[in-house]
Structures are given as structure tokens and as C-alpha cells.
Design a protein around this nucleic acid. Sequence first.
DNA 1: AGTTGCGATGAATCCTTAT
DNA 2: TATAAGGATTCATCGCAAC
Lengths: 377, 377
Amino acid sequence: MVGSRSGASLRASRTQLESALEHRIVVGDCVAEMSKLPAGSVDLVFADPPYNLQLKGDLKRPDDSHVDAVTDDWDKFSSFAAYDDFTRAWLLAARRAMKPSATLWVIGSYHNIFRVGAIMQDLGFWVLNDIVWRKSNPMPNFRGRRFTNAHETMIWAARDEKAKGYTFNYEALKAANDDVQARSDWLIPLCTGDERLKGDDGKKVHPTQKPEGLLARVLLSSSKPGDLVIDPFNGTGTTGAVAKRLGRSYIGFERDRQYAKAAEARIAAIEPLPEATLAPFMTARSAPRVAFAELVERGLISPGTKLVDAKKRHGALVRADGAIMFGDKVGSIHRMGAMAQGAAACNGWTFWHVETNKGLRLIDELRAEIRSEMGSV
Amino acid sequence: MVGSRSGASLRASRTQLESALEHRIVVGDCVAEMSKLPAGSVDLVFADPPYNLQLKGDLKRPDDSHVDAVTDDWDKFSSFAAYDDFTRAWLLAARRAMKPSATLWVIGSYHNIFRVGAIMQDLGFWVLNDIVWRKSNPMPNFRGRRFTNAHETMIWAARDEKAKGYTFNYEALKAANDDVQARSDWLIPLCTGDERLKGDDGKKVHPTQKPEGLLARVLLSSSKPGDLVIDPFNGTGTTGAVAKRLGRSYIGFERDRQYAKAAEARIAAIEPLPEATLAPFMTARSAPRVAFAELVERGLISPGTKLVDAKKRHGALVRADGAIMFGDKVGSIHRMGAMAQGAAACNGWTFWHVETNKGLRLIDELRAEIRSEMGSV
DNA sequence: AGTTGCGATGAATCCTTAT
DNA sequence: TATAAGGATTCATCGCAAC
């Protein structure tokens, strides 16, 4: 999915997009630094926050102050509260930076994801899906006291309930999945081998580096080339690396200079894929709008032509103005199609046909001809 | 469906356990009624609370047919805060009734599960796993605006962090899973067909009936024969039906008299499995185990079925948990096959057969059926 | 008797643009 | 901002009728 080679001819063609892209890492606290971004400027947020596995005292408040170690129940509660405060703070800062149509992803485990999800709902985020990352090679449970923890959970949410127009590349995902729509459970291997960043000592740079395959699916499903993607918890820069490869702009935020440095080197070495491999393909939804009247104007259908449904049970007459007449009623291809079926709604383009000497022809095919003439595809 | 009969000898042997079991449904509010149970008396809680779906308008399929959604009053809450209060109340009442070693399961979707999980943590429950029920046949996303919502989430938790000695049948689960640890993602079909309870009008009795295969795995993994299982949201009584079949006691709580009535009839008709198929087997961890639980869960092989080798020289009995019994030994299909042959090792899949009216059938063929149906792994 | 095709259905937060 | 209109959109399974 994430290839890497590109031919010289393709390389030339992408300079335009590429020159407009940026890829950088800001060293500092993500809440403070995200607040410096222009409000409503970000297309996609991906966040892999600390999981706070045990909440045992190494927890920092949003202001970076230390939370005292916990031994009793009261302190345990207070540390949950501190994690909640921290979560609320970065979610709010990210939300401010998001465009109205932007969406946000968070990944977590059962240690933290419930708190994060509840807070997201409280802040007004609108959950679109929860996505399960099924690990094909999870770490076994050594003590045999629980099920093998073989997945992590991602929450995908819009900025608010009313948000419309968020990016979801439905057709591309479906095409990539044997023409079956993509599901909420993804099977992806852990990040291992060469992909895993190692230090000079040969040890892994970061304990929770995510696989690029996971980020690729996230970005491919919910962003477009040229979009601005940010990651409040940059870490080793997986989000940035994949963003650059996929032709997206990226800003990562990272408190730890060592992580930031390793990530910068990693991202700098990334070769973006050729634009041609990234360009969104024309879908029914994105195709330019063509009115039925245009078919008449261009002479693909003459006024007076009879339209029929697939089984020739209903007939309608094409008028010069692009409306059609069904019985004594006049209206759009959609309204008349609905009326013919006694249905509330109807897509007239896929209901009505014209009769040719080679049999019936769907008017949607005639529309496709016009669209191809218009230079789209 | 292969085999379902149990011999008279097996039947006789279970009267002792059976007479000590109870299976009843209490009509009323679960918070008030659970509070009447003796504190610390319950071994396992399974809860399928309202999800608070917050559905607005109407949804239609592409063929214009109407989607029968969950519009019942019991799923309507005025706000997140109201839902949280409701959740806190029933969780506290359940917690009081639990033994210190008891565990609790809750199932939900992204609409409610984050809130439930966060509240559980706040109340002191200790999460052991989150389990993903992957649906093999989910309803598609009709508008193509999101990922197919193909899973639900269960949270499995102990009463508190310090709780020790909770039941987790690690060995049996591993044996039932081809000697591989059971994972946190389970692939199970929806409850459809004959299993789905229908009223006199032929319509489903309850909009959210869970599959028995799901409950079977829950009870087999985290309870023992004779345990007391309760379900605060009884519904159609799936938990009770599976509990009775597996030799557990059951108390369900249900506000709706119609649901309760249907559930009582359903549970009364359940035939408990022979004790021999249920008895826990505790052996040294070093002893290799085997299994094929999915065939049992999916009903391709019923507990109590006799397995034989190609020449019918050896016979073994299928247990409910997916292990098998050979003579007085219990283990995986592989181990027991080896024992039957006096060999060091054996591939149980290609050794054991079930008897059908068309002759012997290799269990490997049944496994192949599931694989092709489900698109395994 | 076995095969094929059609209709029904499942915990669903399911549209976008123009006026 | 509210309303109207255009027009885009489904997978696995089961039961039953038709052949």
C-alpha cells in the first residue's frame, strides 16, 4: 500500500503540490503550541496520547506539574481526575485548531480510551466510528490470567454533531477492499523489524511506535492530498512520515527533544509518492453536476423522446425544458420516477431509459458521456 | 448440525448438580431488585444495558426499504448526564451483590461504552480486558459516509483492583483454540434465523437479542458450573438460557413483563448439557491442550457428540468448552488423539470424525466450512 | 430431491447543495 | 437559517417459493 519508488517523469509532475507542503515538528507542550495555530486551520488530527497504564505517580498535569504518588483510593481517584484534565486540555486545543469539517482520531487501550471517549462526547465531538486495530502478532499474556490483549481502539470523530462535509474516501476504500465497504475492524501487524526506529545502542527509540500501515489507512480514509495533518504527540513521527509519503502537510508536537530529533531525520528521508498514485479518483459524489436539461440541450435526447423504466412498465415524455411528463404530471426525472413507483424518492438517472435500436439505454450513461467531454473522469 | 443427543447414562449423572441450580427472572427495576440480593452472593454479572443510540430521523436502504431501528422508550435518555446517573446506579447495585472474586461483563457500542467504562473505573472496578465482538454479518453502512459498524465492545472487569481468585478458564480456552491463547477479538455471527425469538406476529420479540454463541464464550471463560450468574437487563433471556445449558444458576432482572414472559418460556425449554461435558479440567500448565471451540459454538458439533477415528476403534466425547474426553482423560483433540493411538503426537483435526447419516465426516472438513464462511483471521 | 432466485433484515448516532 | 430538491447508497445470511 505504501510503495516507495517513483519514476522520473512522475517526479517532475509533483513539484507543484510538493512545494506547497510543509513537514515540521514543534518542540514544546502540545497544548501551548497548538494554541498558536490559526483557529480552524487543520484538516485532520491524529493523536496517540500517553496511556497512563497504571496511573502510578509519573503523571503530569497539563501545566507539567507533577502529581504525587498514589497509594490509597482517594489518590487513585484524583489521578484519574488528573488524567482527565490533561485529556480535556489537549482535546480542546486540538478542537480549536480544527476546521469545521475536520475530523480527529485518537488511539488508546482499555486503560485510557474510555475516559478519552467520554470526555470527547462531553466536549461536543461527534463520534463517527470506533475502529479496532486487530494485531496480527500481539504480545501474548504471560501469566495466563486474561485474554491476550490483541487489539487497540481508535475513536474517529467530527468536531461537532452538525459538522458536514468531512472527508471520507468511501469509494477508494471500497475499491481497495474487493469492492466491499470497509469495516470497523482492521487487521494490521505490529511495528517491527526495519520499520522500528532503533537508537545507536540498537534499542528501540520509543516504546509505542505505531505501524505505518495503520497511519496509512487512517490518512487514506479521512484526508486528501494537500491536507494539513497534525499530531499532538509526535513521538517517532509515524504520522508525519506517512503524511509526507502521502502528499499531506504535517505539523507534529513533541516535548522530548530526542524523539523530535529522531522524527525529523526520519521524515526528512521520506520520499513522497508520485502525485498520480495519490490523486483522488472521480467518484459519483465528486463528479460535476449535470442537469437533465443539458442532455436535451446537447441533443443527446430530443424533446418528445419517451423514457421508460427497466421493465417498460412506466413511460414518460421528455419536454423541451428538461422536465418530463408522466401521465398528466410534469416534474423532474426524480419526482416523476418516484411517482411512477409510488415511492417517496427516486434517483431518476438510474431509473429512466431511452429506447434505442440496441435495446434500452440508461440515461445515466448519457450523462457519463457529457461528463467525460467535460474533461473529468 | 451434527449430533445433539445425549445418552441416558449421561443424563442420569447430572441430576445432582441440576437440582441445586435455580433459574428465575425477577420482574422489576434492576437497581431496586438487585439490592435485595444478599451482598457478595454473585459469581458473575453480564449486563447488556441500553446503548443510548440517540437516533434522529429515519434511515432507508438503497432499495428504499425501511430500517427497523431501536426506537424503544427504554433506550431514550434526556442527556449524557442522565445516562451516566443511570449507569452509576446499576453498576453500584451490581457491585454490591458481587462476591469479592466475582467479575462483571458489560456490552456496548461507541454510543455508550466509553461512558460506561469511565464510570466503572471511577467506581473502582478493575478492567481485565476489553473484548471486541466482531460481527461476521453486520448491517452495512447504507449512505457510505462511515466505516461499517462491524463490532461491539465488551468490558470485562473485576470488582476491584485487589480482587484475587477470579475465574478465568485459561487452560480450557487455550485447548479450545488449537493450543493458542484466546484473544481479545471474537468473530461471532449476529443472532438471526431460528435462534431469534419471534412473537405470534412473526416479528422479533426484542430488537437487540444477543447470540447465544457470544454468551457461551463469556460464561465458559469466566465462570464455573454451579456459579450464580445474574443479568440486570434480562431482555429475551439469552444469558439465562446459556447459563442453564451450561449448568450455572441464573437470576435475570427485567422491567418489561412481555420480555420476562418470553424469556421464562425460553429458559424453561432449555435442556442442560450433561455434566460430563461441563466439568472443569484442571491440570498442570505444562500439559499440552487442544481445541476446536468454534465448531461447538457455531453448532456444527454439539457438546456430547461422540468423535471416532477412521476405523471406529476409538471414541471420545465433545465437551461444551471445546475440549474432548477420552476415557476419563480430558484434553485437546490433538492430545486425546495421540493418546488413543499410543503415539507421541497427533493432528486431531485429521484424526477425529463425527458420525453422520452419510457416514463418517472429518472434523477438519467442518473447520474448513467455518473458514470459508468467515474468511478466517 | 436438489438448485436457484427473491425478499427480508440486523443496536444505525448514515447527504449535500441551492434557494 | 430553514426548506426544498437533487440524487447517492448495502453485506451476509436465512427462509421460502419457484423450478
